[in-house]
Structure formats: C-alpha cells, structure tokens
Amino acid sequence: MKLVIAIVQDDDSAELIDSVTEAGFRVTKLATTGGFLKAGNTTLIIGVEEEKVNYVISLIEDTCKKRKQIINTTTPITGNVDIFMSYPIEVEVGGATIFVLDVDQFIRV
C-alpha cells in the first residue's frame, strides 16, 4: 500500500478530485497555503495499491498543467521604508508536487 500526497493549485483541485474519484479512488482534501505566492493550494491524500501508483500520478499530470501568471510584487524604495513600488512579474504556477510514501498499515473502520 502507498500513500500519494499531491499538492496542487486550488484552480486544479476540483477537476483532479473528480478524476481521482471517477477512477475509483478515495481522496481526502486539505486546504493549504503555499509559501512563495502565499496563495491557496490544495493537498490531496490518496491511498493506493502499489501497482496503481503510476496510474494515479498520470491522472495528476493530466489535470495539473503548469501555466504563466502575472502577479504584482511590492518593494520598498531605497532610503524610505514607508514608500513601496509595485510592479508585475510573470511566474510559473500550476503543476503538482507529489510525494509517494510507503504505508505500513492501512485500516478502514
């Protein structure tokens, strides 16, 4: 038994949960926040048999695509801490961070 933990962007989570449950897997959804953009993420926890791990990963890869997004960032103007300058930067968002862990014991009651 394996535990797949997938951290995905909120925009991809509903479609991914639908794909995973339609494929017959149970999934637990946790609301999380990313550190870089400080934006909402979703962490999904999926218990799977070892031989089905690659299938679950392919579902995640098919749903969670990387894309470019413009965000505004603020920087203090040198010499004056009370004045900030805002400027847009392009960042890559989406995709998924996936962890696959061994499960010593799985109990459903």
Results as ranks from 00 to 15, higher is better:
Val109Asp: 10
Gly24Pro: 01
Met85Ala: 14
Gly34Ser: 00
Val100Lys: 00
Thr33Cys: 10
Glu50Ser: 09
Thr42Trp: 00
Asp102Lys: 05
Thr73Leu: 13
Val81Glu: 13
Lys2Ser: 09
Ser86Leu: 11
Leu3Cys: 05
Lys2Asn: 15
Ile57Met: 10
Gly34Ala: 00
Gly94Trp: 01
Ile46His: 00
Leu101Cys: 12
Glu15Tyr: 10
Val53Asn: 05
Leu30Arg: 09
Ala96Ile: 01
Ile89Pro: 01
Asp18Ala: 05
Val91Met: 07
Ala39Gly: 06
Thr73Asn: 12
Met85Cys: 10
Leu44Ile: 02
Arg26Ala: 14
Asp12Pro: 06
Ser19Glu: 13
Ile83Ala: 07
Thr42Cys: 07
Ile107Tyr: 04
Leu101Thr: 06
Ile98Trp: 03
Val8Met: 01
Val109Leu: 15
Phe99Leu: 09
Phe25Ile: 00
Asp102Ser: 03
Pro88Ile: 08
Gly79Met: 02
Ile45Phe: 12
Leu59Trp: 06
Asp102Met: 00
Thr63Ala: 10
Thr74Asn: 11
Tyr87Leu: 15
Ile107Phe: 04
Ile71Met: 02
Asp104Ile: 09
Gln105Val: 08
Asn54Phe: 08
Leu44Met: 06
Phe106Met: 12
Asn54Arg: 11
Tyr55Leu: 13
Glu15Ile: 10
Ile77Gln: 09
Thr21Asp: 04
